[in-house]
């Protein structure tokens, strides 16, 4: 039983000459729910996308579930099968039904047979409360429903870590809560979660830890109460004021 799910040491990332991540150090223990927030351009998305290899980095080290994430395609493959991700723009496959969206990745990524995959998919879709839409296509569903399907799709692979990259930013306000609810259930079920979000209510409710990033660096970290009620750094205070005011 590992203690540390994700371990990041001295991570540096550049986009050309732009220094996107500056000497980031972070440890995410198992079963922790971590929320990353901060102003746009702070590198939050970049950081979370490094965790499953969607972005590369120049120097430092990144270990996920004990496996180094870097140049080695084999370990990258293994990591991706055990880490799930939900995107801001859902990224469902529009030419497949909801059910097939959840079934196909299981068959292709981890080689389950179709019957087993279908059962698992139906199970997850039921938990996300979209099971009466299984034969529909993504664009027939609302944004909130699509995002829940995306979550079901990721969970069908039974990941050990879930990454969320601004999962509710593209949703109409009335649909945000239905997605946050299922995310909260997930957190309470002891899933290791890293979530980039602006939804402070969610952070207050379920986060074990919150970090604030600005300009590629981690500026402050602590429990939700510490960050929201007693911010230490000026940047944090400014950000909280902007978000709340």
């Amino acid at each position: 039983m590992r203690d540390i799910a994700i371990s990041i040491k001295n991570l540096d990332k550049y986009y050309g000459s732009f220094h996107a991540l500056k000497n980031v150090n972070l440890e995410v223990p198992d079963k922790q729910t971590l929320v990353i927030c901060g102003p746009s351009g702070s590198g939050k998305s970049t950081l979370i996308r490094c965790m499953n290899g969607l972005e590369t980095y120049r120097s430092g080290s990144l270990e996920v579930l004990g496996l180094p994430v870097g140049d080695n395609t084999k370990t990258l493959d293994q990591v991706r099968k055990r880490v799930g991700m939900v995107f801001q723009s859902f990224n469902l496959f529009p030419h497949f039904t909801i059910l097939e969206n959840c079934v196909l990745p299981q068959i292709r990524a981890i080689g389950r047979d179709r019957a087993e995959a279908t059962e698992e998919a139906r199970d997850q879709l039921k938990k996300m409360q979209v099971d009466d839409h299984v034969e529909k296509y993504p664009d027939q569903l609302s944004g909130g429903q699509q995002q829940r399907v995306a979550l079901a799709r990721a969970l069908s692979l039974k990941p050990e870590i879930m990454l969320f990259d601004e999962p509710t930013s593209a949703l109409d306000p009335e649909m945000i809560s239905e997605v946050l609810e299922v995310m909260q259930d997930l957190a309470r079920a002891d899933m290791t979660i890293v979530c980039v979000t602006h939804e402070m209510g969610f952070a207050k409710a379920v986060a074990d830890r919150v970090i604030l990033m600005a300009q590629g660096e981690i500026v402050e970290e602590g429990t939700p109460e510490q960050i929201f009620n007693t911010p230490q750094q000026q940047i944090t205070k400014d950000f909280m004021a902007a978000v709340n005011g």
Partner: peptide
């Protein structure tokens, strides 16, 4: 959209599956 490619990669789907199952059918349609 590029997002679908990222989703397939994040799900651990192999490259050939990305091309054959996801990209080509949509590209042709």
């Amino acid at each position: 959209s590029q997002g679908q490619e990222e989703a397939a990669v994040a799900l651990g789907m192999p490259y050939w599956s990305l091309v054959v199952d996801i990209l080509l059918p949509q590209a042709f349609r």
